[in-house]
Each structure stands twice: as structure tokens, then as C-alpha cells.
């Protein structure tokens, strides 16, 4: 146990895939706590019955189902750190994954 702020930083960092070590967490913890304390003013407000605003635009623009040219593979895979025979290469990733079975979680 490092204290609630530091623990919170470490747990949140794991979720965000940030490799924060204990030293960094000790610096970030108080900053994190200070910011949240400043934000606590929000709890004063009663928002019962108020609709949230998450997207500012209200009209949805859509597209028709027409195929448009994809990009040449090299223009995208060519930018990758480890292109392999037209694939994106990454360190071996089974069996554990965040979610879902092979063939797409969703």
C-alpha cells in the first residue's frame, strides 16, 4: 500500500496501459488528488433530470453503401514498426487477451 492516491494512480495506469512505476506514481498521486479536489465543486450541483451533452452536433451525416478505393497496402503497412508480408507484426498475443475469443471479441 502506497496511500490511496498512489494506489489509484497505479490501478488507473494499468487500465490505460501506462507503465507508471512507484516513483512516478508518488509524483503523480498528489497532482491527481489536487486536481480531483479542485473538480469536487461539481458535486455541489444538482443535475437531476438534466440531459447530458456528449455530442454537440445534432444532425447525423451518413454515407451511402458505395465502395471507395482502399489505400495501397504499402502506404499504411509500410508505416508500421514491424511490417511482415503485408501484415502488422506484433509480439505473440495468445492465449490471453483483453476480451473476446480469437476471431473478434465484441
Amino acid at each position: 500500500m502506497e496511500g490511496p492516491d498512489v494506489d489509484l494512480v497505479l490501478e488507473t495506469a494499468a487500465l490505460a496501459r501506462l507503465e507508471v512505476d512507484a516513483g512516478e506514481a508518488r509524483t503523480l498521486g498528489p497532482q491527481f488528488a489536487a486536481i480531483l479536489k479542485h473538480f469536487e465543486v461539481l458535486s455541489e450541483l444538482d443535475v437531476e433530470g438534466v440531459e447530458p451533452t456528449s455530442v454537440v452536433s445534432t444532425e447525423l451525416q451518413v454515407r451511402t453503401d458505395e465502395v471507395r478505393p482502399s489505400m495501397p497496402r504499402d502506404a499504411l503497412v509500410g508505416n508500421a514498426p514491424d511490417p511482415r508480408e503485408g501484415f502488422y507484426g506484433v509480439p505473440r498475443a495468445i492465449p490471453k487477451r483483453d476480451a473476446g475469443g480469437q476471431g473478434g471479441q465484441s
Binding site: R17, L18, E19, L76, N79, P81, Y88, V90, P91, R92
Partner: peptide, 22 residues
């Protein structure tokens, strides 16, 4: 995975992702 820089990390996929972001 798809572009820009990458760090190796502990050699696992999730380790690579975390090290890259770190």
C-alpha cells in the same frame, strides 16, 4: 502496432503496448 514508434517492453503484446506508451 500500426505506426510510429514502438518500445519492446517485456516481449509480450500488452508489455509492448505499455512500454511504447510509457
Amino acid at each position: 502496432v500500426r505506426y510510429a514508434t514502438r518500445a519492446t517492453g517485456d516481449g509480450s503484446l500488452q508489455g509492448m503496448i505499455a512500454a511504447t506508451r510509457e
